[in-house]
Write a protein that binds this DNA or RNA. Structure first.
Lengths: 154, 154
DNA sequence: TTGATTCCCATAAATTACCATGTTATACCA
DNA sequence: TGGTATAACATGGTAATTTATGGGAATCAA
């Protein structure tokens, strides 16, 4: 039986002058538990950084490899983009990673990085952009409640 | 055959200055039985906190991982809202969890937290909001009853 | 050397673990 | 059945630990 490892919660940590940020403790625990590494890349759809474990990217790679779907060409392209952009990040003894200029710039992060859990993945936003994004999502939900399995058993 | 694990009953416990609340003993028993953890998040539809076992979220994550592609837009939005808001809560040796400001504020809880069982999930309300909600629900049932009776008599 | 990255130490704040007390529910016995 | 002993639970307080974060020394590359 596999232990659960979900990236959860929303945590705002400071980015210091050297570009260092504490990876949230819970996230670190996952990395240690799986003895894997964190991989980050620019989101293809939003002004934020996206991150996951190296494990997940490996799974993605083999999924694509074994796919018999004729129409997965787009997905294939997207995957190439991600792999081309992705970079491994390891944290120091105090739990900090050092994000690159490229990533920070894409996410418009200056002094605060907001980590947002997404289950198997997570995202890193600027405070401003995340506030706007969250408002947008909540608005969207109000209009049409998602028909997720979870919601079915009320 | 799986053991039954339903969150039941309505229990009011005090929230102290630090935000600590005793998780009802029956709820704790479930968590121990399943060797999982409690996860809480702001209800999307009501002024209350919603809680479930981490197992349930795990299942959701797996469903998402398998059923749809890596790049689905709708899924992206949903996972942000659900996993981004959810947080794991483990209880200490005396059975208490520490709720966050964000959650308490959303549920308008100050000094008392009312745990309401909902089967696989549960909710945490302020006394005031729960009294109103319960009254509303009972009222709603009353209105529906005539039609239920008719069906019974057939 | 200069600039950048990594490593290590220090501190304050937040979180967690633990101990003690009061209260309620349960079990037991006369 | 009533009363009491016992266990389980809730709750207040405090000690111990973890985490975030700032700064500096050591290391490395150009």
């Amino acid at each position: 039986m596999s232990k659960s490892f979900l990236f959860l919660d929303t945590i705002a940590n400071k980015v210091d002058a050297k570009g260092r940020v504490s990876l949230p403790a819970d996230y670190r625990a996952i990395v240690k538990e799986l003895s894997t590494e964190i991989v980050c890349y620019r989101s293809l759809t939003a002004p934020c950084i996206e991150g996951c474990t190296e494990d997940l990217l490996e799974k993605l790679a083999s999924d694509i490899e074994n796919s018999t779907d004729f129409f997965s060409e787009t997905q294939d392209d997207l995957t190439n983009l991600i792999f081309g952009d992705a970079k491994k990040f390891s944290f120091d003894s105090t739990g900090r990673i050092m994000l690159t200029e490229k990533l920070l710039k894409h996410a418009e992060i200056t002094d605060t990085a907001v980590f947002v859990g997404k289950g198997r993945k997570f995202q890193i936003w600027s405070e401003k952009n995340w506030n706007e994004e969250e408002a947008r999502l909540r608005e969207k939900i109000k209009l049409r409640r998602p028909s997720l399995k979870m919601e079915d058993n009320q």
